[in-house]
Amino acid sequence: MNEATAAQADSPMIEIAGLNKWYGDFHVLRDIDLTVARGERIVICGPSGSGKSTLIRCINHLEEHQEGRIVVNGVPMTRDVKRIEQIRRNVGMVFQHFNLFPHLSVLDNCCISQTWVQKKPRAEAERTAREILERVQIADQALKYPGQLSGGQQQRVAIARALCMQPEVMLFDEPTSALDPEMIKEVLDVMVELARDGMTMLCVTHEMGFAKTVADRVIFMDQGQIIEQAPPETFFNHPKSERTQLFLSQILGH
């Protein structure tokens, strides 16, 4: 952890307390408590349907929760639209299926939030966008359209698009699940790079190698609740709960 973030480490980046959410009558998130420190890298794993995606989607209010408190960067979440937009400005998100805007060029995808949210002049927005595209090593594709890129390239553009807002936190919702095996590495490399730079990250992923190298903490979820959380060492070598053991044996078994 670098010094700048360590200095603020006492005020947490994200605070979640007593979070409960239902889809109709289905109880998807049950009494979630989670505090994320500044600069902390968290990997969330668990079987499908365990609520891990729903949890991170609650953090930028893509999903509405019914009970509990979420505070992001000191701003408590309410149903007020302005407040929600304020929180989203600090939270970047990367989706499983990229969700790039197909009718806009790569550059325009990266500029849209700078133009309409940060109200930056076009030249400045483009400069930022090109810098960040350079960071994800895709600057040469800036004028192409998403449909012309490979899956791995699209996902890197999606990361760049989120970074263009200069967020404090990045949420990753299974960023490599929709990719062909040979493209996973190029995306993970970008994510590792981002982690090295001290970005606060919450990643829902099954890439256990990634968890081992960058995570400060691994969280295991099942049936809508956090079953176990520990630093990767402990988590992988001495899992406490039987469910975690079962899950790890399934995912690492082959």
Binding site: N60, R88, F95, N99, F101, I112, M165
Partner: peptide, 15 residues
């Protein structure tokens, strides 16, 4: 696709 709106929301674009 719903994902388009979600991505736009995540970028905190106003409605």
């Amino acid at each position: 696709p719903q994902g388009q709106v979600e991505a736009a929301k995540a970028l905190s674009l106003p409605g």
